[in-house]
Amino acid sequence: MELLKGRGWNFGDNMDTDAIVSGRFLDAPVEEAARHVFESIRPGFVDEVREGDVIVAGANFGCGSSRESAPEALKTLGIGCVVAESFGRIFFRNAIAIGLPAMVCAGVSERFNDGDTARVDVEKATVENLASGSSFAAEPLSGEMLLILESGGIMEVLKSMMGEER
């Protein structure tokens, strides 16, 4: 996988899935849900975020619901990677499953300001803050997770499996 580089957005601890995509948008198309990401806690985020931006968060990012629209809405907005001290486990699974890299990285949230450029090597599991020059070791992803990410998500993996069967 190529290196990911983008502006970092710093979020605190316990950013729950309702803050990412509210329950009122669960029956809506993801494009609609994406227009309201972080509306309740950080109004205006969707207008400022750019393609390739990186979320750098504290502990328990994406805790709560199993809604896949949470990572999907972030991906729809152009977020290239989510780095956090720890994740709600279902959010983490869903992020990998839809092809959005998610990296567990201790100590990262205290060393990132909004706008600092992040560089992430998903395969080598490293995260750098290019503004401050600091670098961090993230937890490596498993071989299967890397395969899913490289394929563009678990549905792409399934599609190629179905193709092989034919």
Partner: peptide, 14 residues
Amino acid sequence: CGIGFSEMAYVLAT
């Protein structure tokens, strides 16, 4: 445990 819709599709298929 809970999973998302894409993983569930994979589970149902495989």
